[in-house]
Design a binder for these strands. Sequence first.
DNA 1: TTAAATGCTTGAGCTAGATCAACGTGGCTT
DNA 2: AAGCCACGTTGATCTAGCTCAAGCATTTAA
Lengths: 238, 238
Amino acid sequence: MRLDIHNSDIPLLCRACEARHKGICGALDPKQLQQLGRQTGRREVAAGTELVAAGVQTDGYANILSGIVKLSKLMADGRQQIVGLQFAPDFVGRPFAASSDVSAEAASTVRICTFPRSALEDMVRQSPGLEHRLHEQALRELDDAREWMMTLGQKSAAEKVATFLLLLSRHVDPLVEGYSDHLEIPLKRSDIADFLGLTVETVSRNLTQLRKAGVLTIQKNRLVTVNDFSLLETAAGL
Amino acid sequence: MRLDIHNSDIPLLCRACEARHKGICGALDPKQLQQLGRQTGRREVAAGTELVAAGVQTDGYANILSGIVKLSKLMADGRQQIVGLQFAPDFVGRPFAASSDVSAEAASTVRICTFPRSALEDMVRQSPGLEHRLHEQALRELDDAREWMMTLGQKSAAEKVATFLLLLSRHVDPLVEGYSDHLEIPLKRSDIADFLGLTVETVSRNLTQLRKAGVLTIQKNRLVTVNDFSLLETAAGL
DNA sequence: TTAAATGCTTGAGCTAGATCAACGTGGCTT
DNA sequence: AAGCCACGTTGATCTAGCTCAAGCATTTAA
């Protein structure tokens, strides 16, 4: 309780916010939180809403409070590659660039805390700790991207699907450390296909494959229960 | 000339170094350069030398002065994916992590300027500008990785090979802004294959394809002259 | 100089995954 | 309740790229 003695200095909105602990706001002191708090807005957006459009000048950034965000790139002829998934309390946006060719879209219902570009940039100038947090996230995303390159370049369709499920089970529930055995796939089959560099049909076939092998159970197309993680890991090529 | 008045304060080794301009050392003042300079070592390593081993505790970092470094990941069963190429004056190493599952190997003869882990960490603490430079590089690498995910996941073999050549022509000569039409491929065919998620044979076939189409000329297997960039871009799916 | 090893190319056939097509299912709209 | 539409599954066929195999060129070793 003593530790919370200054809790009253912390903006109401931030008090229960995960971004203040594991997210980038953890680098800010109560005064800075208040300053930033004046410029932030909380929004709840529906699945499918575009948060950041590719190639368009970005006016602001956001923290994810809950839900899942899908990052994707588009080719001229319409081919799409999903290049990442983000979970609470990740930071959304490309710092230090006016725009990016990656677009961000809410994959599920998403609650975000937005703030203008200038607010972040001012804050970074004042607080080196904030840039450090952003840097750490960028490095984590880089590790993830490279891990995924391995999957895209070297794994078979069956391995890709299993790897995807493992990735989800590690991330969907931010409260659980490690794997959670019960999860909701936040993407439709065509998105999974775009993530894995496969077709919808191949994704579907491999999911039923895993189902028939007893590795997992699927309800309502989206709700997955993993019955045997070591089997799933083997299927993923680990 | 006036601007160089303090040149004598800058360590000899750093004076002509590219890392001091476009690289991370540009964030340091002469005094800091001297301090860092005391702990740095210059080395020239032969092609094939492992600079950072995957999974092994890293003792130090380096800047690339010249040459090309290949970053790769390995699966348990031996499958390999090349997850990035680095050029002068890039920084090599994974800051803020004791080890990484990415290994770095000299693809050509490489000259590097090495420094111990602690030296970098001390320097980062003193100079927020240095962390900013590292952060910028991480973000650039992240952009590159995602661009490559697009290539790995969505492009055909022919498009992959063309995309690879465009990537090289944009990077091999750090002095040239934009494409250079005359370049040396720093990788053998099997490495290109590992980069593209293809087999050696497919890479070879697609290179001869481009040769026969008159898009490029190849000498001694490694020396490529691009005759028509717009054709190459079309072949890359752009 | 010859021999052995390494890297690159080319050909022939095979197979994982794409494509094309049909059908099922659940959620909306009217 | 009927009809529609988006999503998912399953089957049949086709093809891009893999595998296997042979041969050539260049480098290294003896």
